[in-house]
Simulated assay, not measured.
Amino acid sequence: MKFWLSVGLIIFSIQHLVAQAIDKERLLEYYESQRYADAAQYLQSIYPADTRDTKVLTQMAYCQMMSGNFPEAEKNYLKVNTIEPNNVPVLFSLAGINSRRGNKNKAKAYLLDIIRLDSLNFNAYRQLAGFGENTGERLKYLKKANTLNATDPDVAYDLSMTYRELKQYQEAYDVLETAIAADPGNFTLQQAQLPLANQLGKYTEVVETGEKLLKENSDVNVINEMGQAYFYLKEYQKCAAVFKTLEDLGVQNEGTLYFMALSYRELKEYDKAEIYAKKTIDEGISNHTALYYTALGGIYEQKKKFPNALEAYKRGLTFDNNHSIYYRLGLLYDFNLKQAKNAVNYYNLYLKSKPDPGKEKEQVDYAKARITALTKS
C-alpha cells in the first residue's frame, strides 16, 4: 500500500514538472517494476545537471537512494535542502542515507534538526534513540517517542529493554502492558514481559502467559521463565519437569540445573538433588578455568612471586589435571623453590599424563633429563 501511494505521489509530481516532454508511462513502468536506477538515469537524461527545480531534484534523489546510489542521492537532496531549507522529508532522507552509510553523527544531526522544527515528531525521536551514545540518552529519546505513541510495539519493546537494563522493572513492565493492551496478539511483547513479571513476583501471570505462548512456539526462554515461576509458586514437581525438558534439549545452564537441585531437595528426593547440585557446579565451571590459572601462575612467576604462582598452579589442578600445569610446577619447584623431591614428583606426573610426544618432545625430554639429574644428586 505504501509503495503504491509513493508511486502515486511521484507520478502526481511529474505532472507539475516544467521541462522537456516526459514519457509518463515509461517512468511509471520503471517505478512499478522498481527499476529505480533506470528511472534516475532517464530523469537525468531529460533535465539539465544544474536544474534548481526541487521536484525534479527530489525525484532523482529518491530514485538514486532506492537504487543504492547514496552519494548521488545525498548530493541532490543537499541541493534541495539548500534551495528549500528546513524540509522535514528531505532531512529524513538525508538522515536515512547517512545512517545506511555508517555516518551516524551526520544522521543524528539531521534528526536533531527535525525535532528542532517539529518537537512532536515521533519518527525522529524513535530514530534518535538508535544513535544514543549511552543508556541515559537512549532512554530520553525512547521515553519521548513512547509519550507520543505509547502503543508502538518497537518503541515499547526498546524502552522496556532499556528500563530492564537499569533494573527499573516496574516501569519496563508497565510500558509493555500498555502496548500489549493495544495488540493482545503480539507474542513478542508478551514474551519480553515474562522475565519482568517474574522479577515483580507475578508468578501466576508468568505461568498463564507462558502456557499460552508455548501453544504457538516452544521457546526455551519461555520455558525457563515458567520454570522459575513454578519454583516460587512452590510447585516443585512442575518446576523440575519443565527444566528437565531443557536438559533433554541440551540447552540447560547453571541456573536451570540449580533450580532443579533445589526443587528435588524440597521434594525430599535427595539423590536427584545431589546429582543436580553436582551438575550445577560442573556447569558453572568453565572448561578453560585451569588454563586461566596457568596464565595467572605464569604472571606470578614473572613477578617473582613464587608462593603465589604455586598457589595458582595448584588451584588450576582442582579444575583439571592439565599436564602443562604439572610441567610448570616441576620447573617452579626445581629452579625457583629449590625443592628437588617435589620437582621430581611433578615431572613424573607430567610424563604420566601422556603429553603429545610430537608436539611436546622437547618438554618430555627435558623432564626426563631433570628427573635423572635430580635423582642422582
Results as ranks from 00 to 15, higher is better:
residue 11 I to T: 12
residue 11 I to V: 15
residue 13 S to V: 02
residue 17 L to F: 10
residue 24 K to H: 14
residue 31 Y to L: 15
residue 32 E to C: 07
residue 34 Q to D: 09
residue 34 Q to S: 09
residue 36 Y to V: 06
residue 37 A to H: 13
residue 45 S to T: 10
residue 47 Y to E: 10
residue 51 T to A: 06
residue 54 T to F: 01
residue 56 V to N: 04
residue 59 Q to Y: 08
residue 60 M to P: 04
residue 63 C to W: 05
residue 65 M to R: 07
residue 70 F to A: 07
residue 70 F to D: 09
residue 72 E to C: 02
residue 73 A to S: 04
residue 77 Y to A: 01
residue 81 N to K: 06
residue 84 E to R: 13
residue 86 N to Y: 02
residue 92 F to C: 05
residue 92 F to L: 09
residue 93 S to Y: 09
residue 105 N to C: 03
residue 105 N to W: 11
residue 107 A to N: 04
residue 108 K to Q: 05
residue 112 L to Q: 11
residue 119 S to I: 09
residue 120 L to M: 14
residue 130 G to S: 06
residue 136 G to K: 15
residue 136 G to V: 12
residue 137 E to K: 00
residue 137 E to N: 00
residue 140 K to A: 11
residue 142 L to E: 11
residue 142 L to S: 08
residue 147 T to S: 14
residue 150 A to V: 09
residue 151 T to G: 00
residue 153 P to M: 11
residue 159 L to G: 04
residue 163 Y to S: 05
residue 165 E to V: 07
residue 166 L to C: 04
residue 168 Q to K: 13
residue 169 Y to E: 08
residue 172 A to H: 02
residue 173 Y to Q: 05
residue 178 T to V: 13
residue 179 A to M: 07
residue 180 I to G: 03
residue 182 A to I: 01
residue 185 G to K: 07
residue 187 F to I: 14
residue 189 L to K: 02
residue 191 Q to L: 06
residue 192 A to V: 00
residue 205 E to W: 01
residue 206 V to T: 03
residue 206 V to W: 01
residue 210 G to Q: 00
residue 211 E to R: 09
residue 214 L to N: 01
residue 215 K to I: 05
residue 218 S to A: 12
residue 219 D to R: 09
residue 221 N to A: 04
residue 221 N to F: 11
residue 223 I to T: 08
residue 225 E to K: 01
residue 250 G to M: 08
residue 255 G to P: 13
residue 257 L to G: 03
residue 261 A to G: 04
residue 262 L to G: 01
residue 263 S to L: 01
residue 268 K to E: 13
residue 269 E to H: 12
residue 272 K to M: 08
residue 273 A to K: 06
residue 274 E to P: 05
residue 277 A to S: 14
residue 279 K to R: 12
residue 282 D to R: 13
residue 283 E to P: 02
residue 287 N to H: 11
residue 288 H to G: 14
residue 293 Y to G: 07
residue 295 A to R: 13
residue 297 G to Q: 08
residue 299 I to Y: 08
residue 304 K to P: 05
residue 310 L to W: 04
residue 311 E to D: 13
residue 311 E to I: 11
residue 312 A to E: 04
residue 315 R to Y: 09
residue 318 T to Y: 08
residue 320 D to R: 12
residue 321 N to A: 15
residue 322 N to S: 13
residue 323 H to E: 15
residue 325 I to G: 08
residue 329 L to I: 06
residue 329 L to S: 04
residue 332 L to P: 04
residue 341 K to A: 10
residue 341 K to D: 13
residue 342 N to L: 15
residue 344 V to R: 11
residue 346 Y to A: 01
residue 346 Y to P: 05
residue 350 Y to K: 03
residue 351 L to K: 02
residue 353 S to F: 03
residue 355 P to V: 02
residue 356 D to H: 04
residue 358 G to F: 11
residue 366 Y to F: 10
residue 367 A to P: 00
residue 371 I to M: 00
